[in-house]
Amino acid sequence: MIREIKERCFLAAVFFSAALAVLPLIAVLGYVFVKGIGALDLNFFTQLPAPVGDPGGGMANAMVGTFILVGIACLVGLPVGIFGGIWLAQYGSGKRGFIIRYSADVLSSLPSIVIGIFAYVLIVATMKRFSAIAGGFALGIIMIPVVTRTTEEMVKMVPRTLYEAGLALGLPEWRVSLQIVFRTAWNGIFTGVILAVARIMGETAPLIFTAFNTMYWNLRIDQPMASMTVQIYNYAISPFSQWQAKAWAGSLTLVFIILMVTLVVRKYSKRVYYG
């Protein structure tokens, strides 16, 4: 009898906590959707931010800015992550490999705002102005551990026999590594890269004092650049309801992009690996 009561209590507690855990998360998504869809219109995607009181206005410059920042981040993060990952997979079994793997782990656990400060003192303080380069650099560092780990895992998944077959044909090791092993692993690595991009698109903290923000068009990477996240933040803490509505619209757009990218990539990678 007591056993049955305990069992019932256990099941009830587990069920209750699962429901309670999902509830606020659904609430967040629900609010973003409802509030955001009401504030979205075509202007939002094509116009510059409007001053308070003026109708219309959008986030076009911030959307372009986010893509430029992500592009700079890829230039910084992808070579280090991909080549580093290949090295770790092929030669990284010793002590040096352990140190590099451990550093990547520590790097991935650092608060992103600390990495923002690093980019600030290295680039903003040297150039004496906020710039897209500094913001992209910070985002690039954040990408490195994720890309390194995925690349290493994917390269390791390539069957050893393929590697040996390449060598047996008389190819030099580097050509086997790049043209056979890397190309075989590329689909998986690509998935990891896209997931890393989705993650840095949502970063705010390392951008507020590196890329800073601007209300105008700017395509020069040595100048302050707007991003969707920083723009959402500025609008969210503003006292004007017109701007707050834009924050909801921006959130909906950003969440939609990130969730779609994540979902599609997951589905695609499943097809590649599990038939």
Partner: peptide, 18 residues
């Protein structure tokens, strides 16, 4: 649950404020 980990923190903040 995994998808929710991908939502940007500024969006949680916006929801938090309002």
């Amino acid at each position: 649950v995994e998808l929710l980990a991908a939502i940007p923190s500024v969006v949680y903040g916006l929801w938090g404020i309002f």
